[in-house]
Write a protein that binds this DNA or RNA. Structure first.
Lengths: 344, 344
DNA sequence: CTGTTAGCGCTTTCAC
DNA sequence: GTGAAAGCGCTAACAG
């Protein structure tokens, strides 16, 4: 029940100036590394010393108001509970802090009106740039409108025909890699557990997979299974549906690792073995997939790099540099133990 | 290579006022829900309408400077790549956004000087409060000093004898639960893979475990194995050391799930089966542990609740309410398949 | 080298 | 009901 301590009013430049009978602007100069040379060494020393003594901390809000920039970049994710985003955010923060900016992270819960509210808020904060990791198809217009006020980049989840820079993976390529893998293992009858169509990565993965599958003579199981959200529970639900509607394919491509984990769990509950009865592949190679039971065959989503590139683009836009083209990074096939030749 | 669009100067209250031949303060009132009633309805309507037309967005930096608050709360984590933090941050953001504040998330890389720099930065930003999730023993003083400038709460990783509110789990209880579990399974010879002593959760877990173990007549293996960081790699390294120094205990308590995952991997590489040859328990019940191979026996760290409580405390401190006592939440034992009776 | 002046965009007395 | 004036803390001309 103790109190948190004395009065909290912070010292200002004016306080230091008054103490030393100087002008605030002199103090400002002395404390700005770039301009410290303009101040005579002894005065500067006195200034630094009293600044220390008074516990002076610059007020970045005031500085930002004056300079029109905030050294802040907004990062808007769909769901921080999805381990997939961690490497992306990691890549973002690593690039940003190395340039003195700080990320402000927020979460939409994959809801478009929440996204709209957050964009509005970030504009009001006058962040230097916004990185949207939570884009859904329906969000194109609101994001474009925002980009007219604050430099904006769309990353990780791409959007088509949008007037802002996009940093993405080549999702179609990832889908193709898995179709090839299934074909090479000898599978003939395959299925997809689709992520939400609103998130373009998923239809793109589906498209690449289907195209390559048909090139290689694979047959796709009929029921079109689309998850409402890319979660473990939805993976189980879709797999249950696939099992109920039979005939069961011998290999299943789940559009992300969480869906795959749910699918494996559902198969286990029905006493189906993975990969002996059914092969299951995921997508993303999120942290820990390698230690799952069974270790998941997947496609590595280049999350850290996507984050890093997105930050680079955002920072250059914030600095007023002209926009350059989109960035597309290659995913990489990662074979592990959840896929095997079909049992015959 | 297209440009990102026209000029980006945002409309201000003064712009709207000029357009309508009114005074900025009138416009300010009309646009503030709490004061809108002070403005005659027709004028207010005209104001709202031109605000819309000009695409007016309030400038929160200016508002913050004037009001002395920023509607921002800093959250400082050690390592965003550790899945353990995700639920904590989730709990934090969920509580904060429901109160109109926005979290600013940063990461120390578990380095004390980075923490010091970040605290300094957050003070400079005049965030309304700071939540430190990255506290190490050595950071006590710097955190206390910070708390004299900005309301600060320490969460998830506690600190002892510190003059700021702490939100934590009961780590000793968690350790006791696992010692009991091992004893009940019939183990006699057990070991710990310790997390860094600088992070108090770990010595606390160790203490609870050792105390209860000796009460129940368990013998602890001798080499004292301490990880430099609580990661998978370090878990493997410690387990290798334990294997090399033999005799092998029949049950191992790794101080977090990542260490446990690394330990299991090391055992596998030496052709030891988990749990048949050695039982392994982790701690935290981070996302996905239930789907690991084998599903990990662990203790659930109440991450979401810790985050939620920490945010509650931070917000009340920011609102100037007096500090109340610390919060301690109970962890919960979660038996799964990585522990079993010793083979005899 | 240092002081003066002005203003970033907003809110808040205090007048009228 | 609305206007006028002042100031949050800082920096950027412009003087001297």
């Amino acid at each position: 029940m103790t109190d948190t301590g004395g009065q909290r009013r912070n010292a200002t430049l004016a306080d230091i100036a008054a103490e030393l009978d100087l002008h605030p602007s002199t103090v400002s100069r002395a404390l700005d590394p770039a301009k410290a040379a303009m101040v005579k060494a002894p005065t500067r020393r006195r200034i630094v010393e009293t600044a220390d003594r008074l516990g002076y901390r610059p007020n970045l809000a005031a500085k930002g108001l004056k300079e029109g920039r905030t050294a802040t970049i907004a990062v808007i994710a769909a769901d921080l509970g999805n381990p997939w985003v961690t490497p992306i955010i990691h890549g973002l923060t690593s690039r940003m802090t190395s340039s003195g900016s700080v990320p402000v992270i927020a979460e939409t819960g994959d809801d478009s009106s929440t996204l709209a509210a957050l964009l509005d808020h970030m504009v009001a904060r006058r962040v230097d740039a916004i990185v949207v990791l939570a884009a859904r198809r329906a969000d194109r217009e609101i994001i474009e409108a925002t980009s007219r006020l604050v430099p904006t980049v769309v990353a990780a989840r791409p959007l088509e025909d949008i007037g802002v820079p996009v940093v993405r993976e080549r999702s179609r390529l990832g889908g193709r890699l898995l179709a090839e893998h299934f074909a090479e293992l000898g599978h003939r009858r395959v299925a997809q557990l689709r992520g939400p169509e609103e998130v373009l990565n998923f239809p793109n993965r589906a498209e690449g997979f289907s195209a390559r599958a048909s090139e290689m003579g694979l047959e796709e199981a009929t029921p079109r299974l689309v998850a409402a959200r890319p979660t473990i529970d939805e993976g189980s639900r879709l797999m249950d549906e696939l099992l109920d509607r039979g005939p069961l394919p011998t290999a299943v491509f789940a559009h992300n690792d969480l869906l795959a984990v749910g699918a494996v769990a559902a198969l286990r509950r029905r006493a189906q073995s993975v990969p002996d009865d059914v092969s299951v592949a995921g997508y993303n190679d999120m942290p820990l997939t390698e230690h799952l039971d069974p270790a998941l065959t997947t496609v590595r989503f280049p999350g850290w790099q996507v984050g890093h590139e997105a930050a680079t683009v955002a920072l250059s836009l914030a600095a007023g540099e002209p926009r350059f083209g989109d960035v597309a990074l290659d995913p990489e096939f990662v074979p592990r133990r959840s896929t095997a030749p079909p049992r015959e």
